[in-house]
Computed example of a mutant assay.
Amino acid sequence: MSNLAMDKLIESDEEINKAADLLKVLSHPIRLKIICQLGHDEKTVQQLLDSVGSTQSNVSQHLAIMRNNGVLQYRKNATQVLYSVAEKASIDVVHLLKKIYC
């Protein structure tokens, strides 16, 4: 048996739940696209709409889910709403997915 198989990868239920919650939020293709588009940058809702390729109401629903789960944060600049990644682990997950699938 390998050392990896003998080691527990995630020790506590709290850590398991936190990881599972993040994976639930990222598990939708549009939400994953949003994270990929944001990366380490800040973007307006219009920029996200243009790059994600969905309706304004659909993107807004996904942004709200991600914001309510602490994955995204936003700030208002006059009439614009700018989004950025709040949960940096989500970027790490995307990097791992890219390494595995791309």
Rank of each mutant, 00 (worst) to 15 (best):
residue 6 M to S: 15
residue 6 M to I: 15
residue 7 D to R: 14
residue 8 K to V: 09
residue 9 L to N: 10
residue 11 E to W: 12
residue 15 E to R: 09
residue 16 I to T: 06
residue 19 A to P: 11
residue 19 A to I: 08
residue 23 L to Y: 14
residue 24 K to Y: 14
residue 25 V to F: 12
residue 26 L to T: 10
residue 26 L to V: 05
residue 28 H to P: 13
residue 29 P to G: 09
residue 30 I to Q: 14
residue 33 K to L: 15
residue 34 I to T: 08
residue 34 I to Y: 05
residue 34 I to V: 10
residue 38 L to E: 02
residue 38 L to Y: 02
residue 40 H to A: 02
residue 41 D to G: 10
residue 41 D to E: 09
residue 44 T to R: 00
residue 44 T to M: 04
residue 45 V to P: 09
residue 45 V to K: 04
residue 47 Q to A: 06
residue 50 D to K: 12
residue 50 D to G: 03
residue 52 V to M: 00
residue 54 S to F: 11
residue 55 T to Q: 10
residue 58 N to L: 13
residue 59 V to G: 00
residue 61 Q to D: 13
residue 61 Q to G: 11
residue 62 H to I: 08
residue 66 M to Q: 08
residue 66 M to S: 03
residue 67 R to A: 02
residue 68 N to R: 04
residue 70 G to M: 02
residue 70 G to K: 03
residue 72 L to K: 04
residue 72 L to Q: 05
residue 74 Y to G: 01
residue 78 A to C: 00
residue 79 T to H: 04
residue 80 Q to N: 08
residue 82 L to C: 11
residue 83 Y to S: 00
residue 84 S to C: 08
residue 85 V to P: 01
residue 89 A to I: 01
residue 91 I to R: 07
residue 91 I to K: 07
residue 92 D to P: 01
residue 96 L to R: 14
residue 98 K to D: 14
residue 99 K to Y: 07
residue 100 I to K: 12
residue 102 C to P: 14
